[in-house]
Design a binder for these strands. Structure first.
Lengths: 143, 143
DNA sequence: CTGGATCCGTTGCGATACTG
DNA sequence: CAGTATCGCAACGGATCCAG
């Protein structure tokens, strides 16, 4: 058997592909905004600068851990600016950078698409679910 | 214990927010394309109809499970059309619906953004990492 | 060729406790 | 007020086996 099996070949391909993905900007960014809170933080900052506790209230369902973690990632990527005011109670303001604002606009565009096509997607789902409840019933009498 | 603690209030808010998110089209769609392979399948089908094994080769690193699962979700949402040809070896072709094509275009737009701003993000990351106090790396061979 | 079922590791995310 | 550190759960994703 001089040739590798399909499974073995796939594994090799996966390894190479994995390395390829590591250098893919689109994938990296997609992985990043894929998080549950990234887009929410982005839109929450759309109004303007917000304090940490402000964001916590705006997004409401977020835990401190996730809010901080999300903000850290966004800050590291230059999407969000973190401004510390060394008051007695420490005050920290977060705001979108121009880069972050452009991404927010993109997310908004996505939101626009989702809302515009929600009906169609919903209808498709209902249709799909109706056609595959058990894979047994034949609508209209097929055959 | 007269008033609820901040933690308790947050939990109540989270419950309400969770219900709110369940009805949010943007979140649902975002959760959906957030998957590792959704966008890849979308772009892989951009060329035109593809067979299952074709997609498997095009995307290369994907497992059968994830490819099938991704295609199922996309089909259910009316983004992908599944066409079965009952040959002796069963043949299945997948293609984008107009709805799926519009989403593909949106993903392509995102890809465009990612590539256009990759340098800026990368620079921001390098800057952030350079300013990080305690990283494992010690510049200048200090230590 | 297509893809369903199952086992298993990894990771995201939430809850909690603690610090400055 | 604004975080940091740790534990635990559940979902995501991959490998493998099995079936039509």
């Amino acid at each position: 058997m001089p040739t590798r099996t399909a499974e073995q070949r796939r594994q090799a391909e996966r390894a190479a592909y994995d390395a390829y993905l590591a250098a893919c900007p689109t994938r990296k960014l997609l992985d990043e905004i894929a998080g549950k809170w990234v887009s929410l933080v982005l839109v929450a900052l759309g109004d303007g600068p917000r304090r940490y506790s402000d964001l916590s209230r705006r997004i409401a369902g977020v835990s401190q851990k996730m809010l901080t973690q999300t903000l850290r990632v966004l800050e590291r990527d230059g999407l969000v600016r973190r401004e510390v005011t060394p008051s007695v109670p420490v005050r920290v303001d977060y705001s979108l950078t121009p880069l972050g604002e452009s991404l927010r606009a993109l997310v908004a565009g996505f939101k626009d698409w989702a809302e515009a096509n929600f009906d169609a997607v919903d209808a498709a789902r209902a249709d799909y679910d109706a056609r595959t409840p058990d894979l047994t019933i034949e609508p209209g009498g097929a055959g």
